[in-house]
Design a binder for these strands. Sequence first.
RNA 1: GGCGGGGUAGCUCAGAUGGUUAGAGCGUUGGAUUCAUAACCCAAAGGUCGGCAGUUCGAUUCUGCUCCCCGCUACCA
Length: 676
Amino acid sequence: MPNFNRTTVTAALIYANGPIHIGHLAGCYLPADIYVRYLRMQKKDVVFVSGTDEHGVPITIKAQKEGKTPQEVVDHYYKVIKDSFSEFGISFDIYGRTSDPVHHKLSQEFFKKLYDEGKFIEETTNQFFDESANQFLADRYIVGECPSCHQPGAYGDQCEKCGTTLSPTELINPKSTLSGNSPILKPTKNWFLPLDQWQKSLEEYVSGHPEWKSNVSGQVKSWLQEGLKPRAMTRDLNWGVPIPLPDTEGKVLYVWFDAPIGYISMTSQLTDDWEKYWKAEDSRIVHFIGKDNIVFHCLIFPAMCMAHGEYQLADQVPANEFMNLEGDKISTSRNWAVWLHEYLEDFPGKQDVLRYTLTALSPETKDSDFTWSDFQTKNNSELVAILGNFVNRAFVLIDKNFDSKVPEKTAGAGLEEDMMKQVQAILEPLSNALEQYKFRDALVAAMEIARIGNKYLAEAEPWKLIKTEPEKAGTVLNYAIQLVAHASIALEPFLPFTSEKLRKALGLNQAEWSKIGDFNLIEAGTSLKNPGLLFEKLEDDVIQKQIDKLQETKKQMELANKKVPEIKETASFDDFLKMDLRVGQIVEAVAVEKSKKLLQLKVDDGIKVRTILSGIAEHFKPEEVKGKQVTFLANLAPRKIMGVESEGMILMAEGQEGELVFLNPSSPIWNGAKIS
RNA sequence: GGCGGGGUAGCUCAGAUGGUUAGAGCGUUGGAUUCAUAACCCAAAGGUCGGCAGUUCGAUUCUGCUCCCCGCUACCA
């Protein structure tokens, strides 16, 4: 284990096709920021790098939908995202972007070196090509009928209706979304990184890090067990980093090739000394990511770096799981999210409240759930009741009794030794938790200072001492203010805005970790500026508003997603007359063997009893439909389904949730009645 | 289907190379108190540690099976 002299901290490059929400913050950026702030407070050499990932297919699709250029789309979101982070105090040293020329250049150099040294394999494969648009089609650009559920409109990589993972060639009757034409298969050359050749080195790398979190090493080992395969590092696309080779018009680097290089290129824009942060053996690299990025950061990027040969591999990859919202998965497309820019509008100045709640509920070991009710509780019973209250008590007591000046320390209440021991006792667990990326635990430990303070005041009772032994009361309040100073330091990584307010009130210039444990940090006689209430209670109606807002978007999304299908082309009166619609009665119903959906019905049509198969088994049990009068199409050509001849079709209406409703007469009528 | 992660108090989560009374915060209940945003402080109640079986003197902790949640991945059509 080398001795590390500096730390390079990266937070995942976020994809620049939408604003950011609490899940992003909780999963990646907040833990990274807490860690970095902790290191800086110890005066460690650290760089904190992140930015937006601005290449790839989804951005081109979004641009096309909005009638903009891809560059316009990413310019917009780069600003939105960067501003949100900045407002929440995520203290990047640099926040870059992969569309930057500096990034293009470094990525190309990286690629070129691997190419020149023969680290890639070239392979020509057949890909769908749109002749009228004159370009190869990414999976998402191809739609067709899903081979699994036969719904039209499935994408080339996945059918959103049934969730099946697809490859474009599996689609039935594929169409290009660019032109609507049928694409042709055309050979194209791409460059693959033979991950299989790096399998052994990667296994050694991973097994050299037994300290990695179980969710990280678990997933990585799962991939290694399956055996790695060559992976294309280039794509046929015209939005991205151009391949630095001749005759590669219309080809770019795969986003997952250039994105991690972004960490490096962004560092190079921060400092001329950037190389040591990535190449020196005494530099420690830490990637903060969400669990969706594990494979790229623990296998693919390391393989790239091994192939390149000059860069250090990550020492730690503290990937978090996902945060849900009110029990449902956060989803940008379904608008099921708490957006940071909206939060700031609704809760101005309350960045630290969200930071606190998200840290306390952080998905460190498993998926977690953010609820507004938790948010309210954390605010009211921890920030207000424990921290805010303690700080307020200390300041108010000194304001009232000592003219806002820190009193002298003389004889105390006899509790001071014990109180300081309690503070000492939390320091090691606090540092350990921070160093081991256990920020939830660390936050609890840091808050303990305020709890100790509340208890100390309750037991020392300075408001009583002031009447009888004022110098003792003064001593107690001196200690109390030292505790406030401790809190301002210990909480800085988590609550930077609050911490700064406290430092201003105490006249402290900076938060230095080494000052914790120093109970003479604030000198007697110092004039205090009461910061006022640090946090305010959140009443039920404010919280309810947020819950209502979510419910409302949920409803709207449901409505938007359930569009009324368009009316089919005009049918002539004769067409209509052709259909013989009748009322009949189900006299018998049985499930069809080997079928999930079908019920075999015997329907009395007034003349005879006919057999009709109906795809309603998932909605109705046979006994439920027996005896029902229904409407059916009587002259539909008979058809054999699952070996049984079906003579007609039962008419059903389909609801928004896919539920089925019988169309039956509103009052009983004779079987065989004609419908017109 | 395979693999990985997780299923521990009402809620959010810790923890145990197997061993006398399984922890924290919030919530609840009771008490004390009034400097403080009815906050703080003290105390208590509350869990057959997902289910079944096995190994063991002893398992919630190990093994097997099983159910549920999350993720990755395959195959079939």
